[in-house]
Design a protein around this nucleic acid. Structure first.
Lengths: 243, 243
DNA sequence: ATCATACGGTCATCCTACAACTTCGCAAGT
DNA sequence: ACTTGCGAAGTTGTAGGATGACCGTATGAT
């Protein structure tokens, strides 16, 4: 292969890098909605890659509804509201305020998830939740597996709502948060924090088992707040529920 | 160009069709997570397209975290939990139960959105909300533009929460619902329903302007329920809030 | 038995060519 | 002067082949 001089970094695959670059240009407002992108050939020259790579990059953005390509004319940027997919920028989550906002969204979803689950969950749902809880409080308490069990616990509750969209959204948000956080603080020597974490989960489970929606929601809300603060994110004062 | 015999339908672009086909195979469980996909050449033969098209299709799925391609080995299906994007199948929304579930999710998000907005919104936020409300209740009341104004109204409230993720998620869900529903019932002769709809929006706005979180959330919750029922979706009995 | 090497399979990238589509301008006809 | 038709140029869509990079395994030498 001929060596080409690329204007962008390394590590990731070429199409992904081109897509990210274009995505950031669009997100940043450098190209306003409705405007036309440069032609594929021009982009290929600009990035120092083949037209094929540019096409793969555009294919990704097109799948998200971020741009629309029309044969014979060109590719156009679309309005951010008509995206066909939700995607969260991992880079942006390094900003503490964004992480706060994501935790706030998670709190909303999970609180309601627990509320609904308490009212709807069947016995096998409870079994699944209990099994995750046992893994978390059992032998894996101090291990890496406990994080996995934690996710399982929350996902099992979301599944118990019987609403597949709630499950999808919560899984997604939790996963984004998990991958953006160093859990060192939680898995390392600070055993009391782990104990607190397990205790919060037990309280949630008890409320679910008692089919008490209000208590379940309340326990979940406090748990998310606690989990946030344990990784250095505070979101208490901002929420002002009328109750 | 040589004519090839394609095994799939028409209309959409080739890469998108291949991607949809693979996506459905994965979603349907025909290929379990962890399993390897056929090679690009095999897929190209199977679908009767060039390898280039297959690569573009895979590029889309890869961007969603649905599959992972490793050079020299092959492409593998990933677990549904670690998707990097949320995507809603428009086809699935034709099923009434799925639409109910999506409305339930919307109700959760929007209720909390209104609650937070009431506590946080500044005067310019209120201006934006009011402006959308005026469009909805004004001249465009019976026109198509009222649907656009309706979206604007809800988005303006979400924006007033100051939480960009809440805004993104609500915009997304609303847009999905809008594109999957025939609003004929709402824009056509049934003027009393339109009146009810406008009245509900006014009630929400009044609560926001009064900075009353509880009232705003309550008004929004009832509005979403009403909006759902006006398009033939019922979700009242299923929600059992502990209050 | 162990290690180095060769080989085939697979994805990654590049290149060229052509088809399909849109736009625009020019020329012929009215 | 206006309309109509057509072709040239530009752009995306698709095909197909070539080569590089990487992985796994088998082969063979030590």
């Amino acid at each position: 292969m001929k060596q080409r001089s690329s204007i962008i970094g390394s590590v990731e695959a070429l199409p992904h890098r081109v897509a990210s670059h274009l995505s950031r240009e669009i997100e940043g407002g450098d190209i306003i909605p409705g405007a036309r992108l440069p032609t594929e050939s021009q982009l290929a020259d600009k990035f120092g890659v083949s037209r094929n790579v540019v096409r793969e990059a555009i294919a990704q953005l097109r799948a998200d509804g971020m741009i629309e390509a029309r044969q014979g004319i060109g590719a156009f940027v679309m309005a951010p509201e008509q995206r066909t997919a939700i995607r969260i920028d991992r880079e942006a989550l390094k900003d503490q305020r964004n992480m706060e906002q994501l935790f706030e969204l998670r709190s909303i979803l999970e609180t309601e998830s627990a509320t609904l689950a308490a009212a709807r969950c069947a016995s096998d749902d409870l079994d699944a939740i209990k099994s995750a809880l046992d893994r978390m409080g059992g032998e894996e308490r101090w291990e890496d597996g406990s994080i996995e069990a934690d996710l399982l616990f929350h996902r099992a509750i979301a599944r118990a709502t019987g609403n597949s969209y709630i499950y999808t959204f919560i899984s997604f948000v939790c996963e984004q948060i998990r991958q953006s956080i160093h859990y060192a603080r939680l898995t390392n020597p600070l055993h009391d924090l782990v104990e607190v974490n397990v205790a919060e989960h037990v309280r949630i489970y008890d409320a679910l088992a008692a089919h008490d929606p209000q208590a379940a929601g309340e326990a979940m809300r406090r748990h998310i707040e606690g989990a946030a603060s344990r990784v250095g994110v505070e979101l208490t004062a901002k929420i002002n529920r009328g109750k």
